[in-house]
Design a protein around this nucleic acid. Sequence first.
DNA 1: TTACTATGGATTTTT
DNA 2: TCCATAGTAA
Length: 725
Amino acid sequence: MDFTKNLNPMQKEAVLHTDGPLLLLAGAGSGKTRVLTHRIANLIQSGVNPFNILAITFTNKAAKEMKERVNSLIPYGEVWVSTFHSTCVRILRRNIAKIGYENSFTIYDADDSERLIKQAMKELNFNDKLLKPKSVMAEIGSQKDNMISYEQFEIIAGSDFRLSKISQIYTYYQKRLRANNALDFDDIIFLTVKLFRDCPEVLVGYQERFKYILVDEYQDTNTSQYELIRLLAGKHKNLCVVGDDDQSIYGWRGANIRNILDFEKDFENATVIKLEQNYRSSKTILEAANAVIKNNHSRKSKSLWTDNNEGENIEFYKAQSDLDESRYITEQIEQNVLNGGKYSDNAILYRQNALSRSIEDSLVKNNIPYRIFSGVRFYERREIKDILAYLRLIHNPFDDISGRRVINVPKRGIGEASVEKILRFSTEQEISFSDALVICDNIEGIGTRHKKIKEFAVLIEELRDFSVNNNVSDLINQILEKTGYILELQAENSDEALGRIENIDSLINKAHEFEKESEDKTLNAFLEEVSLVADVDNYTDDDDTVVLMTLHSSKGLEFPNVFIPGFEENIFPSYRSLMSQSSNDLEEERRLCYVGITRARENLCLTSATSRLQNGQFVYNMPSRFLEEIPEDIVNSTRQNIGVSMKTINTIPAKKPNISFKTNNYDTINSTSKNSDINFKIGDKVKQIKYGNGTVIAISQEEVTVAFDGLGIKKIKPQLLKRKH
DNA sequence: TTACTATGGATTTTT
DNA sequence: TCCATAGTAA
């Protein structure tokens, strides 16, 4: 089979390239995934064993997509396609004992890490007002990203007051992680590189296995990821990296743009291929994107072009207020749908999560279905983290962060003071958290509390026994039953509690899915899977809903119509980037703007608000400087006239009815009961966006049956209905 | 220990 | 505005 059919000459060259280092500079929308997958297929066809190919991505979604596309081209042989983190976890599970951890290690997320940092600071008697746990965590993370161990950092910190404090925390933190047999996200990469450096025989094994390596989104790699790739590709040097320096937007997370800019220096005789033809956007949109990005200085020269149509001008709407801005966007979307488009053709991409609020309110008010990504992520929700903490403690008796989290959830009368004592005891005696619970009568000053602690210890032991012969979903059910977790939520009887129960159900579903699909059905494998997923991984365009997400999470996606609200100084570019001494920060904002613009296929709409309620205060920002960088003749500017907008504002009810829980994302469509009253009665007059007016004729647990005027009887989720007065 | 109130602090976050 | 936390009362 010819895998170069329908490819342009540059794409063809990239697909046919086989041995040696290759840098693919792939502009936005230039068909990079297509090239990557066809290249893999071509390698296999020309005799490379799929077993010898490794493809690395940043997100599970990208990995999954690539895998599917490769399989559809060459439906035999398994290529190892996975994220940096999953790849490393797989390597570590086999080999981590060589560097002093147990292979049943737990993976801590950012929240767990922060708790551990706080614990460390408390233990070291550091004031968390002077030194914020968050910034300490960022500092430690960036050290790990740069492959600097706590021992090395102690030397670097020297006598610098702040750095030496951080160094002490880093040391304590790392030792605690080790004692808990836990790794944080940065450790996953850091320790893999350490493993390769310390144990050359392990490295050689993987070098032999991965004769061909492909790395996607190379501009986002940090130093440790770069080092990992350099080591793995060190022997065969068949390394193909794909990236776009103009789309590097994770510098603040340690991504080192140098990695892509210096690829040719780092890998001798590298072939460089530029993919500059864009297949996604209209000429106008590309012109805007190019005009903005050309103001950046540190970049590889590259200019995107397209054969697509001229397309529509870019809309700029200068709103009076954030309310006016939301109203405008809502109206535009309604208009797009009336013109025959789908809701899912529309994406609203913002610089900060906080900007979604007023837009959500407006969408809800107008019964426009939407899905929001980011915000509180599914696996970071309290109830989910609680259940996972039980699972983790069951799996890893040393995990005191998880133990601490659930020891008094639901309330068992074991307070902060007792927990501290148990922790100290387990550290002093060098025993696991679980063992400390069992022999808690030996702890001084624990008093009569030991009875309750023992009960908890027995509970965990029983669950641990149960876990041996039962699958994950049954184990979760057992936890819920034995702890009375659900009962407590039911007793609360609030919308919020109901939402939490729903989320727990989703988790159980997730476990069922896992049991059906996964090869390795152990608790360990389940925990691993859930610790390494992100929100955007759940993005599908199956549902016909408007999409809301941050500009950062939108990378790699595309939509016919893109709205970017908050196109203002201090928001986009952000206040911090404007305050920064380094011009790099502003340039990164500009790249983010470039990413945002190039998400759009047909229409791009930018909006700013003259006044905006932010953090409870009114702020007044000028339109973004990026707007001025777009040629005037391709922008239609509209400015809200004050009289009209006042009228608009007055028609919006002052008080929102019945605010309840926020469902945000995952498998929930629309914003559920942020909507008005969902307790309908039979006989209520209601309105639904598709079917129009109707009357409620029956109500069940989840659905309301409505007789729509002239359109018959339909069952509808109550949150999609609006009451008519 | 817990349940209440006051206060202060709020980018972006692939895993 | 909304959230997490610190401090206080019971």
